[in-house]
Amino acid sequence: MAPKIPGLEMPVQEVGNASKMTPVPIQQVPQAPLKEPHVWNTKNIGLRMASDFVSGFCAATLVAPIITVIDKGIMQNASGQATLKSSLQSSLTTFLFRPHTIVFSKPFALICMLYGGTYLTANTLDTFTSTTQNKPASYITSGTAKFAASSTANVGLCLFKDQAFARMFGSGGPPRPVPLPSYFLFTARDCLTIFASFNVPPLLGPVISRQMGEEVQRVVSGQTVAQFLAPAGVQIVSTPMHLLGLDLYNRGGRLAWRDRWKIVRKNWGVSAAARMCRIIPAFGVGGVVNSKVRKNLMTRLE
């Protein structure tokens, strides 16, 4: 046997009486670097999820009365049950003197479901992200995932709300299915509103800021102005889609498009103004209340 030299990982070959060392290199297998274990922030996860729910539906309950009144008025005006002015006056009077009849009504519950579900979806995504990425509980996302999740929730819930409102405040007679073209028109309307609410303000805000003086920017930023202006402004374009979808339900699908356009054009201006008034509390006031309540609750749980 060839002798081993301590400390060297190589055999020694014997040649006659002399020993000749021939190094035989040993290939080392590279070791993978140790990975740190992924840590999730699960502290108070149950209370954090409860906070998501509370903040979302607190905001929805706050803005639901005015949105319920306006949506009912638009529906009744489109179906011919009442003018927008008379419907608004009647609903506001009822809310002032008998608020329980509004608060405990099905239309109010549908509006709370719509915006509470939208806010809750956004809040839940923030909590999921903060948990899986080990971020603080009050962490807020602003990426594509949040836009997609909130948009999907809002469009789906809004379609359910609209078909229910159309049956409650439509042209009368026995309830009938909402036609498929109406669903398409309502979806296009909501996509425009959501795009204007989430995508346009970051682009429009810097443009507005450049047109504002420094003194004005100390009071309000261009981003804030854009956040209110863009969703309200897009109602000029989306309102005809809303009115046409309602007309297809109220008068059926056998009328000429020229006759439908006359109805849409007649109600365009007043309905667009009313929808602008409902967008401000829905995506302005409601969004701010939801964010502030959630941040306050989450900060206490960190």
Rank of each mutant, 00 (worst) to 15 (best):
S90A: 11
G116Q: 04
F108V: 02
V103T: 12
K106I: 11
I102R: 07
S105C: 08
A109N: 05
H100K: 13
F108R: 00
F108P: 05
L88D: 13
L96E: 15
R98V: 05
F97E: 08
R98L: 08
C112D: 13
Q89R: 14
F95Y: 09
G116W: 05
I111V: 10
G117V: 00
V103P: 11
T118V: 12
L92N: 08
L88N: 11
G117Y: 01
S105P: 10
Y115C: 01
T94M: 04
K106Q: 11
Q89T: 15
L110G: 00
H100T: 10
F95K: 07
T94R: 03
P99E: 14
G117P: 03
I102H: 03
F95L: 09
F108Y: 00
R98N: 13
Q89V: 13
L96D: 15
F108I: 06
P99K: 09
P99V: 03
L114M: 02
P107S: 01
K106S: 12
F104A: 12
A109T: 15
R98K: 08
T94V: 14
L88T: 07
L114H: 03
V103K: 03
L110D: 10
T101C: 09
A109K: 10
T93G: 14
L96F: 03
Y115D: 02
I111N: 07
M113F: 13
M113A: 08
M113T: 10
C112M: 02
T94G: 13
G116C: 06
F104D: 12
L114Y: 03
V103Y: 12
C112H: 05
L88G: 04
L92W: 06
T101G: 10
T118I: 07
L110C: 01
L96I: 14
Y115R: 04
T101E: 04
C112T: 08
H100I: 03
F108G: 02
C112F: 08
C112P: 02
V103C: 03
M113S: 11
T118M: 09
F104V: 12
Y115N: 12
M113R: 10
K106L: 11
L88C: 07
R98G: 09
C112I: 01
L114I: 02
I111F: 07
S90H: 10
F95V: 12
A109S: 07
T101V: 06
M113C: 08
T101H: 02
L114T: 06
F104M: 14
I111H: 03
C112E: 07
I111P: 05
R98A: 13
T93N: 15
Y115G: 00
Q89G: 06
